[in-house]
Computed example of a mutant assay.
Amino acid sequence: MIHNLAADVQAFTSNAFLVDGDRTTLVDAGANFDIVPSIAERVDDLDALVLTHTHPDHVGNLPDVVESFGVDVWGFDPEGDGVDHAIPDEGTVTIGDDEYLALHTPGHKDDHLCFYSRAAGVLFAGDLVFPNGGFGRTDLAEGDRATLIESIERVEAAVDDDLGELHAGHGPSVARNAYSHIELASEAARHTP
């Protein structure tokens, strides 16, 4: 089961997905709200915190989660603040009950990862693509539109077109025609000025 712990938060934050299972995992920690009680009311323990990238809105709550649950943090760049273990490009990571392929997808931020499980039919897209053709901004440090387009195209090629769920870093999750949202984002990123 995937729970977005930031779904009703009014503060500026990313989504924070709690995935329970054999390896109960938090995908991104969010920021500017007290996430610890939300985790504790759903699970007894947390096995891992996995990051799509280290922008402040995705890692603001990281210290509180680590302190409260004694959990290790996984991300692309172990040199990044708070990241304990590296997840390499095309490496695998267990999230909940499923194995996910990690795809290095820079363009929004250099350390950006997307996580895709063919078996579960789930993509955690971070800030690469959003519902309805949205895509990550490239006007921040490390942002680059051409690189972002390449990353979107990489995910578009890697993901099955019968994708069941798309969980983005912001906004609602998509559970119908999820792949079409990646296609729309790819098209929009190539043609939006």
Results as ranks from 00 to 15, higher is better:
A6R: 01
A7V: 12
N15D: 03
N15M: 05
L18M: 08
G21R: 04
D22Y: 06
N32G: 00
D34M: 11
V36R: 07
P37Y: 11
E41L: 09
R42I: 02
L49I: 13
L51M: 12
H53I: 03
H53Y: 09
V59Q: 05
G60C: 02
E67Q: 14
E67I: 03
G70L: 04
G70H: 08
V73M: 03
F76E: 12
D77L: 05
P78K: 11
G80M: 07
G80P: 00
P88R: 12
P88H: 03
E90N: 14
G91S: 11
T92K: 11
I95G: 00
D98S: 13
A102L: 04
H104S: 08
T105R: 01
K109A: 11
D111R: 08
A120V: 04
A120K: 08
V122I: 15
L123S: 06
F124D: 00
G126M: 07
N132R: 15
G134V: 04
L140S: 10
G143W: 02
D144I: 04
V159Q: 09
V159D: 03
G164K: 15
G164H: 14
E165Q: 13
E165H: 13
H167F: 08
S173K: 11
S173C: 08
A175I: 10
Y179W: 13
E183H: 07
L184S: 11
A185N: 09
